[in-house]
């Protein structure tokens, strides 16, 4: 699987909204860091829809 979601850590507020919708458990929120396991991500973009701060950026192409 190829992950083309790009994540901007500086825009993240560590709220956990994205982890609640990730179907592949690719996202783990620690106390102050969001860890993305890119090999588990299938690029469904659900995380980017619920992020209150727009921390996920879509990157053109594969």
């Amino acid at each position: 699987m190829v992950c083309i979601m790009k994540f901007d850590n500086e825009k993240c507020g560590y709220c956990g909204a994205c982890t609640s919708v990730c179907p592949n458990s690719s996202l783990e929120l620690t106390e102050n860091k969001l860890i993305i396991e890119t090999d588990k991500c299938d690029d469904c973009k659900r995380c980017s829809i619920v992020c209150p701060l727009g921390a996920f950026l879509e990157v053109e192409g594969n």
Binding site: V21, C22, R46
Partner: peptide, 13 residues
Amino acid sequence: DTLFGTKDIGSCV
């Protein structure tokens, strides 16, 4: 299964 749909999550600031 505690997965929520994107339509089901209130995204808040």
